[in-house]
Structures are given as C-alpha cells and as structure tokens.
Design a protein around this nucleic acid. Structure first.
Lengths: 327, 327
DNA sequence: CGAGCGCATGATATCGTTATCATGCTTTCC
DNA sequence: GGAAAGCATGATAACGATATCATGCGCTCG
C-alpha cells in the first residue's frame, strides 16, 4: 500500500481511503490509484485491516454434519445473503458433540469472526461464556428453543410432531409409529417425537414401545425399521419418519415386498425434499423454509455486525404439512 | 496478552510462547499462565498473530453450488482433514461463473488464506494471475484437467464417459442416450459426454441428436428426458444420466408408467449415491471416492502450507462402474 | 575452578492496515 | 475582503500478536 501510494504520488492513507470509499478522494486521483493497483497487482491485506479496525467480515457456521443434504438449502441461504453484503462464511461440523462445538467456537472467536450461527441448541457452559465475552451476534437455527443464547430463527420441532400427529388422526389412522435415529443427544428429534406422542395421547391414542423405533442411518435403517414395525407392531397404520433417507428406505422396502402404501401402511416424513415429492407414491412431508432460515439468520448477523440493529430476535418461520399420496 | 502476562508476573512474550508450545516454558510457569488465562477468559487474537507471523490457517473452497448434495462428501473430507491439522474452512459457491469465481478468489487472497481448493477447472486470466502472485497452494478437484493451475486431485470425466459406454456395450445394448443439464459452460459434463459418445462411436454405435438430451434440473427434468427419448428415439435401449436427481426422476417416471427397467430400457448414472444403490431396481452408477478427494486435496494444501512438501501433484483417484439391476 | 554452552525469559521492532488529529487549501457568505 | 467552514490529504500512533536478538542463570566438563 505504501508502494502503491508512492507510485501514485500519494500517501498510503489516501490509498486506503480510495479503496474503501472511492467518493472520499478526488476523481482523477482515484483513477490514478486504481491504475497503479492493477498494474502492480496489489491485493490489500485484510488481516492487517481487521487488526487495525477491529472488524472482520467473517461469519462462522457450525452444523451437526456437512455430509447430509439437510442443511444444504440453509447453507445456500446463508451464503447468498452474506455474499450480498460482502461477508465470508466459515463452516465446520461438530456432530452432536458439545465439546467439539466448544472447541470450534473458541477457535472462531480467536479468529475474531463477526458473528456465529449455530444449528445445535445445546451448548457447553464454557461455550456460552466465550460467546458472551466475545460480544458478537449469535443466532441459533435448529429449534425454536425456549431460552436461546440470543436470537433464533427456526420452527418448533415439538410443534411439527404435533402437526403430523393431527394429520394422521384427521386422515383416519388409529395406530401410529415413529422412526428416527437414536434420540439420545439429538434434542431436535427428541422434541419432534415428544410432540408427536403427546398429541396422539391427547387424542386417546397410545404409542407402544415397539412403535418408537430407533435405527442407524441409511436406507437400510429405514427398511429395517419398517420390518420391525410390521413384525412387532403389525397393527400400525401410519409411520412418521424423521429423515428422508430413512423414509425412502422404508418406501423402497415396501416396493420390494409389494406392500401397498398407504393402503396397508401410510408413510410420512418430517422433512420435505424433492425426492419425497417425486417418489412413487409421493410422500407426505413437513416443509420448512430452509433457505429462508439461512437468509434470515445471516441477515440478523449482518445487521448486528453493522450495528444497524441490536437486540435478540426470536423468529418462528413456521412449517407446512404437505399431504401427498402416501398418507 | 499483556494483561495476562502481568497477572502471571511474566512478559507477553512468554505468554505467547506458552500458548504455542507449552514445552518452551517451564512447567510451573505454564500452569500459572494457564490458570490466569481461563480466569480472565482470555482468547488470543489470531488476527494479530496472522499479521505478525504472516501465516493463517484458513483454507478457501469454491464449489459450483452448495445446494446440491454432490459435493457434501468431498466437503466433509476436506473439513475432517483440516480440523485434524487445526485449519479452518471457508466456503463459497460460484455457480459456473468465472467472474464470480475471480471475485471470490480476490477476496480470499486479500484475507490471506493459506490455500485454495477449486472445484471448477476453468478460470479467468485475472484469477490465475492473482493466484500466481499470491504464491499459495492451489488444488483443483473437478476434473483431471490437462493443464492444472498447480495440483489436481480428481478423476477423468472423459474416462467415466468411456467406461459407461463400454459397460453398456458389454451388457449388450446397442442404442444409447445421454441426459444431462445443458453442457454449455459445464466443462465436466461436456467431457463425460464426449468420452461417452467417442467410445460408442469407436464401437460402431452412433448417437443421434435426439439421444443427447439436455434438460433443466430436478426430478421432472429426468422424467421429461425419459419421455422425450421414448417419443423421439424409441429404439433407445440404455440411458446414461449425469446427475442422480435426473436419474431418479426418470426411474420414478418408469415406475409411474409401468415401464420395465432394465427390460424395456436400462438406466445408469454418472455419480453413485446411496439412493441409487437402494432404489427399486437398484441403479448402476459410477462411484467416485469423493470423501477421499476431499481428504487428499486438503492434505496437499496443508502440506504445502506447512512447507512439508512442495511442487505440483496430479493425482488420479480413479472410479468404479458399479453394476446393479438397472442395466 | 573457570570457560563455555544451553536454556528460560525479556526487550524491541515489525507486520500492513485504519483512526485520529492536524494541515493547508478552496469555498462561502455577510 | 476576511473569517469561518468544508474538503482533500498527510503524519503518526495504535491494533495485538510474533521474530529476533539480547540477557542472565545454572550446568557441564576438562
């Protein structure tokens, strides 16, 4: 920058100003500086800039997994909004480990990111302390948690469970099951299931232990769950899946074994996807505005980082039960 | 850090050393410093550290899209390896726009990332210049391109096209089609198709214009492609899809219309996924070691960033045609 | 027993920006 | 016409670490 300055016959300060706000220097000077800059191929050092100004444009995102496609839409939403405002995205996955999340948060704070978006809603004490001390905006997106760190943009997993229960009841089913990964350490799934079971119970439908199935991930997890239910709870009329892979696994298994859906058994999933909508039969599912969640979460971070806004926001983005042929 | 130092009765320098290498200070001193650090909740400022040492631990990744799940495995591989070495990941998507890619690269270089991983293999002149000037490791992953910027970790898309052509021929099919998104500006798909068509031609099988179908994305893209082929090239016996969503769309359409796969028509896809493997019928597909690509690409960046290694590497990770019921 | 060496620690300059205040020049307006 | 105000630019001091060289101390070894 000093070099650029001297080549253009001005001070480094003027170059800095020209770069950040072209209107702050005279027009001919700006042109000249610009010319010098791309003649020498100068690229400003944002690290130095950040240190000096105590501001960065990096936003951290921590999701449970990068592998599953569930978060892709949300990440795209975040990325799009951040790009629009000239911010960058740093991503990590932490599984369901609070310890790992804490380590990641610590690193991100050390990097002086200007905001953090967390998909998980359970955090270690230390993590909370670090975030509080850092004084940066924090947005959670995984669940409409009762006591957020600061802001939340999400839907209520509990409510989705209730909604699906009502949908099944309205459709005339009387014996329901729920299939998911193990709920232990999976707050969101646990909440969905609680809402589901509670709403069924309120309608006088009790759910047997054999109807709360926990399986390992993957299509065959879904297939196995279906088998188990048909074997141990054969009177089950409808199954609510938490995860489209599980659900598709069960659907494929039905196709293989010639089981009629929804005649013999109805299927539905907690998370809509193109696949479920296009499957044969098309599968009932709950749709969340995932892209929008990403956009809004990122917007909150950006607003607070630019001091436009402050204060915690709790935003329930809601959801829709999309009824299709499978139920 | 000064504060921590004075509270522990040592200089800032010693704190810095203690933080980076506990063995470089005496044991009791280290304990004391550690105690002070978490008493005051001190979090080191990596921005300052980076400026001073002229090193960062941030690696940039630019993929065409975050929305599709195609890259999820690779991203997970990158993320896992980076975490193991204490590096961070910055992600952006640039579609197929070289201009956007250039802008992103410029920003990342300004942020002084210590390495860049690019999925696309076509780049603007300026982007290349910026990367060259930056002197940081660059790894491409999208295709085994002839003249890489520096290092490549990938497979040959052209070769996958050839391989699938051979597979179809060996299986006894004599009239083939290819379905993909528009190949314009999509180097990788274009190469796959070229390899496919070339290998077929070498076997004396010509591909009609109606058999090279370009559709829009989504399940209905695949369905539409199938319809078009059945209508305009009814003698087609096998279709090679570029993209599992398109392929599944076609498969579902077959189910809906009672078309027997592979009896009436065989299907195969260029990119294996759990879904294709578990579908009814299970779909033939080419498997790439995506996770491994991510790991190796990240490894190259880390090695070079830590000066362990230098020099360009071209690594062909290969692929496998996984034959299943659909062909 | 003394020269020399190694190890733990400190002092100081520096990394490349931006914030802040200072400066000089032009403009404005009574 | 001159004081005040506004604008463009410059000089200088941070920002919070690390690199580098300096220092002092104990230890080894002939």
């Amino acid at each position: 920058m000093k070099v650029v300055g001297s080549l253009a016959g001005v001070s480094a300060m003027t170059v800095s100003r020209a770069l950040r706000d072209p209107t702050s220097v005279s027009k001919p000077l700006f042109e000249k500086i610009k010319k010098v800059i791309d003649e020498v191929g100068y690229v400003p050092n944002l690290v130095a800039g950040s240190l000096s100004s105590d501001r960065t444009t990096q936003v951290a995102l921590i999701v449970p997994s990068l592998r599953t496609a569930i978060h892709a839409e949300m990440i795209q939403g975040i990325s799009d909004l951040l790009r629009r405002h000239g911010f960058q995205l740093m991503i990590s996955d932490c599984g369901n480990s609070m310890e790992l999340e804490e380590t990641l948060i610590r690193t991100y704070v050390a990097q002086r990111v200007c905001g953090v978006i967390l998909h998980n809603t359970r955090h270690s004490e230390s993590a909370l302390r670090i975030l509080a001390n850092a004084g940066i905006p924090v947005v959670e997106t995984g669940d409409l948690t009762k006591k957020p760190i600061e802001s939340v943009v999400s839907y209520s997993n509990y409510a989705t469970g209730q909604a699906m229960a009502r949908h099944f009841i309205d459709a005339g089913y009387r014996s329901m099951a729920f299939v998911s990964l193990p709920v232990e350490n999976r707050e969101r799934i646990a909440n969905t299931r609680r809402g589901y079971v509670a709403a069924l119970k309120r309608a006088g439908i009790s759910v047997a232990g054999e109807q709360l199935v926990e399986v390992t991930t993957g299509l065959e997890g879904g297939a196995r769950a279906l088998q188990q239910i048909l074997t141990h709870a054969p009177r089950t009329e409808a199954i609510f899946f938490s995860g489209d892979v599980l659900c598709m696994g069960a659907l494929f298994e039905c196709q293989r074994r010639g089981i009629k859906v929804p005649k013999r058994i109805a299927l539905a999933n907690s998370d809509d996807s193109e696949l479920l909508a296009g499957a044969v039969p098309a599968v009932t599912a709950i749709r969340y505005p995932r892209y929008e969640i990403g956009v809004q979460a990122a917007q909150l971070v950006v607003d607070r980082a630019m001091k436009t806004e402050s204060g915690a926001v709790v935003r329930d983005v809601g959801f829709t039960v999309v009824r299709r042929e499978s139920s």
